[in-house]
Protein backbone atom coordinates (compact mmCIF):
# COMPACT_ATOMS: atom_id res chain seq x y z
CA UNK A 1 0.00 0.00 0.00
CA UNK A 2 2.90 2.31 -0.71
CA UNK A 3 0.84 4.32 -3.22
CA UNK A 4 -1.95 4.99 -0.73
CA UNK A 5 0.62 6.06 1.88
CA UNK A 6 2.13 8.45 -0.65
CA UNK A 7 -1.30 9.93 -1.42
CA UNK A 8 -1.95 10.32 2.32
CA UNK A 9 1.31 12.18 2.84
CA UNK A 10 0.75 14.36 -0.26
CA UNK A 11 -2.78 15.36 0.81
CA UNK A 12 -1.63 16.09 4.35
CA UNK A 13 1.34 18.14 3.12
CA UNK A 14 -0.98 20.24 0.93
CA UNK A 15 -3.32 20.71 3.90
CA UNK A 16 -0.47 21.67 6.19
CA UNK A 17 0.76 24.21 3.61
CA UNK A 18 -2.65 25.89 3.37
CA UNK A 19 -3.16 25.91 7.15
CA UNK A 20 0.24 27.60 7.48
CA UNK A 21 -0.67 30.14 4.78
CA UNK A 22 -3.91 30.88 6.65
CA UNK A 23 -2.04 31.56 9.89
CA UNK A 24 0.61 33.69 8.11
CA UNK A 25 -2.22 35.68 6.53
CA UNK A 26 -3.82 36.10 9.95
CA UNK A 27 -0.56 37.62 11.19
CA UNK A 28 0.31 39.73 8.12
CA UNK A 29 -2.91 41.28 6.82
CA UNK A 30 -3.74 44.83 7.97
CA UNK A 31 -7.36 44.64 9.20
CA UNK A 32 -9.91 42.13 10.45
CA UNK A 33 -11.73 41.75 7.10
CA UNK A 34 -8.60 40.93 5.10
CA UNK A 35 -7.44 38.57 7.87
CA UNK A 36 -10.74 36.75 7.58
CA UNK A 37 -10.08 36.22 3.85
CA UNK A 38 -6.92 34.31 4.68
CA UNK A 39 -8.36 32.27 7.54
CA UNK A 40 -11.70 31.16 6.09
CA UNK A 41 -10.48 30.01 2.69
CA UNK A 42 -7.16 28.49 3.65
CA UNK A 43 -8.31 26.94 6.93
CA UNK A 44 -11.30 25.26 5.35
CA UNK A 45 -9.36 23.69 2.47
CA UNK A 46 -6.32 22.97 4.66
CA UNK A 47 -8.29 21.13 7.33
CA UNK A 48 -10.31 19.27 4.68
CA UNK A 49 -7.16 18.21 2.87
CA UNK A 50 -5.51 16.85 6.03
CA UNK A 51 -8.72 14.96 6.87
CA UNK A 52 -8.93 13.52 3.34
CA UNK A 53 -5.36 12.29 3.72
CA UNK A 54 -6.16 10.63 7.05
CA UNK A 55 -9.34 9.14 5.58
CA UNK A 56 -7.31 7.51 2.80
CA UNK A 57 -5.01 6.03 5.41
CA UNK A 58 -7.71 4.64 7.72
CA UNK A 59 -9.41 2.15 5.37
CA UNK A 60 -12.38 1.81 7.71
CA UNK A 61 -15.80 2.69 6.28
CA UNK A 62 -17.22 4.34 9.40
CA UNK A 63 -14.08 6.36 9.95
CA UNK A 64 -14.15 7.61 6.35
CA UNK A 65 -17.84 8.50 6.73
CA UNK A 66 -17.12 10.44 9.92
CA UNK A 67 -14.28 12.28 8.18
CA UNK A 68 -16.67 13.21 5.35
CA UNK A 69 -19.17 14.45 7.94
CA UNK A 70 -16.52 16.68 9.54
CA UNK A 71 -15.42 17.97 6.11
CA UNK A 72 -18.97 18.81 5.02
CA UNK A 73 -19.59 20.44 8.39
CA UNK A 74 -16.54 22.70 8.23
CA UNK A 75 -17.34 23.63 4.62
CA UNK A 76 -20.75 24.86 5.79
CA UNK A 77 -19.78 26.20 9.21
CA UNK A 78 -16.55 28.11 8.47
CA UNK A 79 -17.98 30.57 5.91
CA UNK A 80 -21.10 31.02 8.04
CA UNK A 81 -18.99 31.83 11.09
CA UNK A 82 -16.88 34.23 9.00
CA UNK A 83 -20.03 35.95 7.79
CA UNK A 84 -21.24 36.34 11.40
CA UNK A 85 -17.89 37.75 12.57
CA UNK A 86 -17.62 40.14 9.59
CA UNK A 87 -21.09 41.55 10.17
CA UNK A 88 -20.51 41.81 13.92
CA UNK A 89 -17.16 43.51 13.34
CA UNK A 90 -18.70 46.08 11.02
CA UNK A 91 -21.71 46.79 13.23
CA UNK A 92 -19.56 47.05 16.36
CA UNK A 93 -17.69 49.92 14.66
CA UNK A 94 -14.58 48.20 13.30
CA UNK A 95 -13.48 50.37 10.35
CA UNK A 96 -11.82 48.84 7.27
CA UNK A 97 -8.20 50.00 7.05
CA UNK A 98 -7.29 53.21 5.17
CA UNK A 99 -6.23 51.46 1.94
CA UNK A 100 -9.85 50.36 1.31
CA UNK A 101 -11.01 51.80 -2.02
CA UNK A 102 -14.79 51.69 -1.69
CA UNK A 103 -17.26 51.06 1.14
CA UNK A 104 -20.79 50.49 -0.12
CA UNK A 105 -21.93 48.90 3.16
CA UNK A 106 -21.07 51.84 5.42
CA UNK A 107 -22.86 54.19 3.00
CA UNK A 108 -26.05 52.11 3.06
CA UNK A 109 -26.10 51.75 6.84
CA UNK A 110 -26.26 55.50 7.37
Amino acid sequence: MILLDMLTIAAMAVGLFFLTVGVVGLLRFPDVYTRMHATTKCDTLGAASVLIGLGLYSGDLFTVAKMLLIIVFIFVANPTAAHAIAKAAYLSGEKPYEGTLEDAYGGDLR
Binding site: G15, L19, G22, V23, L26, V32, R35, M36, T39, D43, T44, A47, V50, L51, L54, M67, I70, I74, N78, A81, A82, I85, A88, A89, S92, E94
Partner: peptide, 20 residues
Protein backbone atom coordinates in the same frame (compact mmCIF):
# COMPACT_ATOMS: atom_id res chain seq x y z
CA UNK B 1 -13.27 40.63 16.19
CA UNK B 2 -9.56 39.97 15.50
CA UNK B 3 -9.42 37.85 18.63
CA UNK B 4 -12.59 35.97 17.63
CA UNK B 5 -11.08 35.18 14.22
CA UNK B 6 -7.86 33.98 15.84
CA UNK B 7 -9.71 31.78 18.34
CA UNK B 8 -11.84 30.35 15.53
CA UNK B 9 -8.66 29.36 13.66
CA UNK B 10 -7.27 27.78 16.82
CA UNK B 11 -10.52 25.78 17.01
CA UNK B 12 -10.15 24.50 13.44
CA UNK B 13 -6.52 23.50 14.02
CA UNK B 14 -7.45 21.79 17.30
CA UNK B 15 -10.07 19.80 15.41
CA UNK B 16 -7.41 18.57 12.99
CA UNK B 17 -5.05 17.75 15.88
CA UNK B 18 -7.82 15.72 17.57
CA UNK B 19 -8.31 13.63 14.43
CA UNK B 20 -4.53 13.18 14.19
Amino acid sequence: PDRVVAVNVIGTITLVILVL
